[in-house]
Amino acid sequence: MRITDGPPGQILVTDSQQGMIFALDERNLEILWTYEVPSAPMGIAYRSNFVFVGNSTTQNVEVYRLQGSSGGSGKTLEFQYNLGFTPAGQPGSIRIPSDIALDQDLGLVFVMDSGERKVKVFDFKGNPIRTFPSPSDPPLLSPVAIAVDEVNKEIVVSDYGDPNGWSTPAAPARIQVYSYSGTLLKQIDGGPAPPVDPAALFSRPQGLAVDGRGHIFMAESVLGQVYVFDRNTGALVKKLGDFGDGPGQLQLPLDLFLDPKSQDLYVTNNMLKRIEVFRNAGALP
């Protein structure tokens, strides 16, 4: 489902079907430890021994402290507190926390609430700070995933849009870039859904990653590819993978994690129930 960095040398993956969090060795993808989450974990983020888990059943973000030995195995999670544990419709409430991203330096938690189609911003203690877009701004239509560019202090959101025109006017799938305060800075449009030609523009944008150098990585869930865009021009810079079940091929990729050190790109390959690694894929001119 969703994937993020974890303790040094580890990546964390949520499995909403099994109700599990998996910690994998980033070198060989071996399972180091698992944790059973009550109900369905979706979004996940990690910061210095704290794991933030979006739970679509309890409709909040659960914060756990990582316990156990300093090695890769023998870990467990101890529940600490919730974000969004307020009545529906109240400030800070969450309906479907489909993705989570953090700004480690500023201590901010960005929750993609795909149910209410808003980005909810909290501090690490769970206090709600802001929600956007505001009613006076263009709405998110069917947002699903989020990433944070901590270098440029920007938030990137993937949105299926409304290509069927059920809203007015019809809108294609798109990627939107916001400032931390919720100002829309940039929009990259996809095409009508779904594309017949695999070379066409995207229509089902899911998980995102950024490299802090002006590139946005996006999982195209229907076509089974990862698109890399130039943040400033919106131009397609590169595609990774293609649809299929062989090595390096994808079926329903839903999330990405770009390792800032190795530049390796980890992709959740959902229909094939595996993780795909594109070594050094983040190394772009």
Binding site: V144, S221, G224, N270
Partner: peptide, 14 residues
Amino acid sequence: ALCLSCHNGTYTDP
């Protein structure tokens, strides 16, 4: 993949 691109728990009808 087309079906599951929406029916994966993240998509909300606009």
